[in-house]
Computed example of a mutant assay.
Amino acid sequence: MLSVKNITGHKIDQHVWYTADVEWLLYGSAVSDDGEDALSVACVWRMKLLFSTDEKDEGPVQPHEHTPRSAAALGPP
């Protein structure tokens, strides 16, 4: 993980959820279809996470814009 920014809290029903903008560094090897060539590749993946500090809840998830409830909770992008 490269960075965590813009952490905000949202109350939904009886639960408090948080969102954060995060950046991940993804890296690895890319191999050609014939297996003859390989090179190292990397990219930065930016995403918004939805998470709770409640022990019963699952770990962080990436809300999808097509899910009306999670999109409404996040507000405008």
Rank of each mutant, 00 (worst) to 15 (best):
Q14Y: 03
A72R: 09
Y27I: 03
L50R: 00
L26P: 02
L49C: 05
M1T: 06
W17F: 15
M1H: 05
L25F: 12
E58P: 04
P63F: 02
W17Y: 11
A72L: 05
K5L: 13
P60K: 02
L2W: 04
T8C: 04
P68I: 03
G35P: 03
Q62L: 07
A20V: 02
D37L: 14
C43G: 10
E58C: 14
D33S: 01
A71I: 07
P68E: 06
L74C: 11
W24L: 10
H15K: 14
P77Q: 14
S32L: 00
A72E: 15
S70T: 14
Q62A: 11
E23I: 06
A20E: 00
G35T: 07
V31R: 00
R46F: 07
V41M: 11
S3V: 04
H15C: 12
D33V: 02
L2Q: 08
V16C: 09
P63K: 06
P77H: 14
G28N: 07
N6S: 06
A42C: 11
K11L: 11
T53A: 10
E36R: 02
M47Q: 15
W24E: 08
A38I: 08
S40V: 10
M47F: 03
D54N: 12
A72P: 00
D57C: 10
P76M: 14
W45D: 15
L26M: 13
I12K: 09
S29L: 12
